[in-house]
Design a protein around this nucleic acid. Structure first.
Lengths: 191, 191
DNA sequence: TAAAAAAGTTGAACAAGTTCAATTGAATAA
DNA sequence: TTATTCAATTGAACTTGTTCAACTTTTTTA
């Protein structure tokens, strides 16, 4: 059952009784996406928070120059949303696209609000999750400033071998913030 | 009284009764720092979370090449800590230095844990604060990838005129992730 | 207030990364 | 299965940003 993975993920962050765990888990509804389908597109408002049960997603924005700037990838056991649009209920700048046939569990914004109210320990859960995410974003910024593109590339493929093996070089380049031509040159002169 | 600003800041995030607000606020202890003094240095463990009541701080890391990489600045009404070291109780990679004579309110890690336990709504407070911070970090990454150094510079000084006017160009360059010589050239050819 | 230290400027040479265009290779859809 | 589309590679010319060194200006400290 797809909720099992979600429950295990939650347990990594916080201790919950089985009853509470089931309550939380039941708020999440499964959704299947085909390869290349979008869970969210730029301009719309993000009304869900998601957890990836299977497959892989790319969260990216298209800037003025037409570059696809990838904020992050989310594979199995990762969370997924546009937190900016979700919190502020403003038009999203992000696209969330399935890179392969995928399955997610979604909780709607409304349901999340009721969940916070009915089960206050969920506040703690998302407080901890958000703080962990914050740590990753800060680390990534430091890497972006202090590593060269080549160092960032190898850090990425070594840290996330499972995810990076599913990605094209173009997608990886979009995550690293470099052109795919330059990534190709990095790979060439590293052999 | 210096706790007033903290209480106002908390109220921006969440509604609390005056009683609860006072309870939270009382956990925070004032500390004065002279210009150039450090609140945290690389290698030590961050045991506090801080709120700036007056003055200004720079949160930076010294990388292998000897570059001072600035994660963020925190002026009056901003929060301050190494969340990575604080959460994981591992050696910090960050230095937190006062840029001018400053006053902070600090809550110790121990006190924060008891506060979470005695007043569960504090979970919600920090959940919201963390999520807002997350939004800022994501936006900053997108800017770093899609803006040139020149665009990032003007975005910074226009968005944070109060903070940037207190900073040297060297410090701003460290925040933007560029050399201070290049920042000088950007300013020259923008006149 | 003088001396010292730090910040800012400038130029020249260099390195990192982009852009464009052409070509090849791989995956996908009809 | 073939045509088509998309990904990857390469080179050349270019732009962005770095490094180093010398110098000026401002700020700090004794």
């Amino acid at each position: 059952m797809s909720h099992y993975l979600l429950e295990q993920n939650i347990k990594k962050n916080i201790h919950l009784s089985n009853e509470d765990l089931t309550t939380v888990s039941n708020y999440f509804k499964p959704l299947d996406l085909k390869r290349k389908e979008f869970l969210l597109t730029q301009g719309s408002i993000c009304k869900f928070e998601g957890f990836v049960v299977d497959g892989c997603f790319r969260v990216f924005t298209l800037d003025k120059k037409g570059n696809e700037n990838t904020l992050y990838f989310a594979a199995k056991d990762w969370w997924l949303m546009d937190i900016d649009s979700f919190m502020n209920q403003t038009a999203s700048n992000l696209n969330i696209q399935a890179l392969e046939d995928s399955k997610v569990l979604l909780i709607s914004r409304k349901d999340k609000v009721s969940l916070y109210e009915s089960l206050p320990i969920v506040e703690k859960l998302f407080r901890i999750m958000s703080q962990k995410a914050l740590v990753s974003w800060q680390r990534r910024l430091i890497r972006n400033h202090s590593f060269t593109a080549k160092e960032r590339y190898f850090h990425f493929i070594e840290t996330y071998p499972d995810i990076s093996s599913k990605l094209t070089d173009k997608q990886i380049a979009g995550y690293l913030g470099i052109s795919h031509e330059f990534l190709s040159k990095i790979k060439k002169n590293s052999k």
